[in-house]
Write a protein that binds this DNA or RNA. Sequence first.
DNA 1: CTGTTAGCGCATTCAC
DNA 2: GTGAATGCGCTAACAG
Lengths: 338, 338
Amino acid sequence: MTTIYDIAKKANVSPMTVSRVINNKGNISEKTREKVEAVIKELNYIPNSAAQSLNIKKTKLLSLIITDITNPFFTKVARGAADKANQMGYQLILCNTDENYEKESEYINALISKRVDGVIIAPTGDQSTKNLKKLIKNRIPFTLIDRQIEDVSCDRVLGDNYEGTKLLLQHLIDYGHQRIAMVHGPLTISTSKERYQAYIETLKINDLKIDPAFLVETHYKQEKQWNGIAHLVNVSPADRPTAIFAANNFIAIKIIKSLREKKIKVPEDIAVVCFDDLELFSDFDPFLTVSSQPAYDFGYLGTQLVIERVDEVGPADYRTINLKPELVIRKSSGTPIK
Amino acid sequence: MTTIYDIAKKANVSPMTVSRVINNKGNISEKTREKVEAVIKELNYIPNSAAQSLNIKKTKLLSLIITDITNPFFTKVARGAADKANQMGYQLILCNTDENYEKESEYINALISKRVDGVIIAPTGDQSTKNLKKLIKNRIPFTLIDRQIEDVSCDRVLGDNYEGTKLLLQHLIDYGHQRIAMVHGPLTISTSKERYQAYIETLKINDLKIDPAFLVETHYKQEKQWNGIAHLVNVSPADRPTAIFAANNFIAIKIIKSLREKKIKVPEDIAVVCFDDLELFSDFDPFLTVSSQPAYDFGYLGTQLVIERVDEVGPADYRTINLKPELVIRKSSGTPIK
DNA sequence: CTGTTAGCGCATTCAC
DNA sequence: GTGAATGCGCTAACAG
């Protein structure tokens, strides 16, 4: 491996001079700069960033911690983060936690060891506070995206789960639905919790009764077999909900599959709506009615905010950016009842 | 930041001893090990991997270079790579090239500077040879995935584009289609080229005439507006193809959108088939007839192969793993004609 | 404008 | 079983 010493020797200068031209620092005569640059090109020299990092204490490494890149929402988040990172000269380490706190902890340790400059994280849940504190202790700035964790000093890019839920439910109610079930994720995740609370609230405001049997909990993961809504539909049609609100797109898919297997038609027999779009899909078959979030921006802005912290150019006070959801009405919510 | 010196001082041992317990190397008495470990835990010490890398010349960093994580095929590839990397104790740097050679080159330079231990790459095209040579010169092992580049010393995980194409076309021909158009990507990309050649061959074998007007070239990227098949459909129905073979899933989506806008029904008016599945989608609406590839395995196996090179446990000869496509017949190819 | 000295945090190679 | 010296490749702080 060639080093600045090799370059220095061949260019008849000191290693320091080489370092200076590499980093464009200090004053160097045009002549020596050209000479050094020629040798660098000739020897295909590329600086060892481990050695650089050891000195300057910056790695130009960022990490994106999400639960699953395979979830279309996070796929877009990742694209946004990767774009901003690239644009700013950073490399992005991808971490999938699978909603698993232990995995998240392992990643956090590895990232601290790597001395990444910053982290963009959608935490696995409320327990993550511990991991975030660890980042703070190690002076690694991070921005929280999508999922809220209270009482942590950091920037945030969050959605509006109340608004998104209300939009969806009000739409169903306006269509005449009175029996609306909800399938939500674990209440240790802020998005689940907020959507859950918004559901309760919206139903109350509309004087609809809240039936505990219509609230089913599942998780935010993909799986082949799922029978979460069995008790919702294995009853006489009159006792079934007329609409189901899925707390995210994965859940919606599971629900629609379940319904199809039981020969229940969407939206004719039961309407289905959900949080987060499946853009690629909706693009060629506008089917699902959703509260769509600007997923790309979560990643892009989240990354921008950390980089500002890394560069210490951000404002003293931590910021929270709120990204608005948009109601997209398509086929799955059917038509007004009666 | 705490270092081995801090640990050493507090534990009353030499820095070297600390290093030894961290790396589980050499002989250490149980007593001192415990003592050191206690201090490490107490001070929340985590080794600086930049310093480690500088010595051992390994970074435990891998990189996945793909064209676009947003393409469902690559999303799965990324998941496979991330899983294997995590499982083996590596971190994964994600790079999106957007089919752009310059971007790819920049990434390659950055990764060499970072001294990543290995790279898993789906190259942008034939020009990428230069970038791959650069990796070789820097002794960074890599495995080529999905896209073939000739005459480069490396492991490969490739699909079978001939087989996948034939499966799809034979299926259409068996259904009675004689006028089959193909929309393919740039012929500088091996997958495009192979699918293109397989198209020509399969048509010939079946004594079907090859109409140049039925061969349209586009690229492998997403876009909002696209009018690539205008000349295919803006003619009298009798002159139109009865089926279209899309060289990948992005293209298929663009085609189906185009057709829908022109009120042409799939598959009633024109059948559409493509390479690569859209699993999430197909899962709840089995619509597209495809040649499905085990995307996850491209990433998983690709990563496994590089790690074997990094660890120098692979066989002397470079390997090529061929992953078989599977024909999945769904609605978009319609029913037998007449 | 350029070179010298020192040290980043750790592991390797020898001693003991 | 443990420690001391040395260097990985580079840059910061100085000197000239």
